[in-house]
């Protein structure tokens, strides 16, 4: 099994529901975004094109972040998920700079102290979610491992109103993701880096 995601740029409407769904699933602190949707504008008025490009950790199969990690905190699972064991991470951020997609985030000291409303106003939601994270370590998209292990789609996929994110088994030629990649010429981001991303884009 090789889990992966296909992102259909034709469908994506840049609504950022995925961005927020990820926040709500993972309870990440302010400034920490495991996924977001970028605007990409080309041309000059009146011939202008605008694309919305969702980005997240690509769960690369030859992941530089795994390679450079000195502690073994970042590892790749059998099913392709690249995960960080926060208990092992020393916060050296070698992975951070090595990720060609800049998809990692370092939790600074104090990152888990205030919550989104500031002051001493941590919400019950944040109090419930933050124990999952550790200050001083590097975090990133987990492909919603807890959900995926229960056979559910990741949160960003689940909510996407346009069904622009599709999750599935890349090693199964009959899965929806494999078929879409085949039929619509799905491509990986920055193939020149030979990182073998598990995320594919469809134009």
């Amino acid at each position: 099994m090789h889990l992966g995601m296909v992102i259909d740029l034709k469908r994506c409407v840049g609504c950022q529901a995925c961005t927020i769904a990820c926040k709500s699933e993972n309870g990440t602190p302010p400034g920490v975004l495991f996924t977001k949707v970028l605007d990409q504008v080309a041309g000059e008025y009146p011939i202008v094109k605008k694309k919305f490009v969702p980005v997240l950790c690509n769960h690369c199969q030859d992941a530089p972040c795994v390679r450079v990690c000195p502690t073994g905190a970042t590892t790749k699972r059998e099913d392709g998920l690249v995960l960080v064991d926060h208990d092992k991470c020393v916060g050296c951020r070698a992975c951070y700079v090595a990720c060609p997609y800049k998809n990692r985030v370092f939790l600074k000291k104090g990152a888990l102290k205030t919550g989104y409303f500031g002051g001493n106003q941590m919400t019950p939601f944040e109090k419930a979610k933050y124990p999952k994270w550790q200050e001083g370590t590097v975090v990133k998209c987990t492909f919603c491992v807890e959900r995926v292990d229960q056979g559910l789609d990741p949160s960003c996929v689940q909510t996407c109103p346009a069904d622009a994110r599709i999750f599935g088994d890349l090693s199964d030629p009959n899965s929806k993701v494999s078929r879409l990649i085949r039929q619509r010429g799905g491509y990986q981001p920055q193939p020149e880096n030979n990182t073998e991303p598990s995320v594919y884009y469809l134009e």
Partner: peptide, 11 residues
């Protein structure tokens, strides 16, 4: 499906 506003009701 939910839009981003719907996703943010917790806050």
């Amino acid at each position: 499906k939910l839009c981003p506003k719907g996703q943010s009701g917790i806050m």
